[in-house]
Design a protein around this nucleic acid. Structure first.
Lengths: 190, 190
DNA sequence: CCTCAATGTATCCGCTGGAAACAATGTTGT
DNA sequence: ACAACATTGTTTCCAGCGGATACATTGAGG
């Protein structure tokens, strides 16, 4: 007997978002097709439009979800005892995420965004907050020269994101990540 | 009198490549359409296929051209006298390029590549060679602690590329780039 | 001149994002 | 209980895309 499928899905928005995330993870944002996602869920290609006004908006939502998950990981990692330990843990968490979710990271840092793309920017700032707080705390504890915690945190973040990008586009081999992370941490530990 | 258009274009490959570069620069790689490019040049949409077997191959060619231009700029900038000066000049050149060619940079560092994508990787390595040489030279001149010039240069490059990414995706405002570059250079000057 | 390779054209395919009119289903007020 | 309304999914259309193939035009070499 065929399972009965009601006219209303009940949770289409989340189903579409989940499927979109899966497609991005497995094949990248460029391969994402609204029609394919709808077909996978078992719904007409016009149905998802009730929740996402277009392709770009769906991609933005996937990016926001990505930043939320990244932020959670960074926050968990920023609780080590000493300054270099915190940097190391955060850097490791960042690159673990970046390598495991290469396609998602590319989407998250994509230049292009739809109307309402501010949501992506604010979710990005939230995700990066733990890094800023880490430097501010270390500064307050006297583990760092006074002043410029914001600047330092941004440059540190840039280093992590840059490493992630170089790894994911093939310039840096995976087996060198660990020693490069060590070098990066050393640059921000004095 | 209407200019006579011969059956054979004479330089179609270059014309397609130039137009593709212009589209990427102005609207981003995602907006690039083979048909539109062909129409702009005044040729059938199937004609460019004689030179680029598909869309991805054309994008790869645009990326290679981008790395070539970036490499030229970096090489020119790496001729300053002292180590911090060289870092500063290279960093400035990198971010100038990144900001002016945001869409192109995104394509250059894109995860996805077609068959024959090794050409992109090798052109990237060539472009980055000046940065590696810069650190090796500084090390040889005793301006840097011995060992790890390769690691240092990769992490420095990552910092630059990361800053570029953060600026281009809107996380870092343009008017903070200069002071962030200073901070980054300071991290690699001891 | 004739042949042949190179280059551009014409035409077809399936797929995509998007828009609009329509149908089925819940919900709410009386 | 029932009518009016809002929500949600369907159907049907469109133009554009990348790609493939068969064909026409051109130029180069024997």
């Amino acid at each position: 007997m065929t399972s009965y499928r009601p006219y209303h899905h009940g949770n289409l928005r989340q189903a579409v978002l989940d499927e979109a995330s899966a497609v991005v993870r497995d094949r990248g944002a460029a391969e994402l097709s609204l029609r394919e996602i709808a077909a996978t869920i078992g719904v007409t290609h016009a149905a998802p439009r009730r929740y996402f006004s277009g392709r770009q908006e769906l991609l933005d939502a996937v990016a926001v979800e990505g930043f939320t998950r990244l932020g959670t990981r960074l926050r968990k990692a920023s609780g080590e005892r000493d300054h270099p330990g915190r940097l190391r843990a955060v850097a490791q968490a960042y690159l673990d995420f970046a390598v495991a979710e290469a396609n998602l990271l590319e989407l998250m840092f994509a230049h292009k965004r739809g109307p309402g793309g501010e949501a992506v920017s604010t979710s990005a700032e939230s995700a990066f907050a733990p890094i800023l707080q880490l430097f501010q705390r270390s500064e307050a504890e006297g583990l760092l020269p006074d002043g410029g915690a914001v600047r330092l945190s941004v440059v540190f973040l840039a280093t992590l994101q840059g490493l992630a990008g170089l790894v994911n586009c093939g310039v840096v081999p995976l087996d060198q990540v660990s020693e490069l992370v060590d070098e990066a941490v050393a640059r921000f530990s004095d």
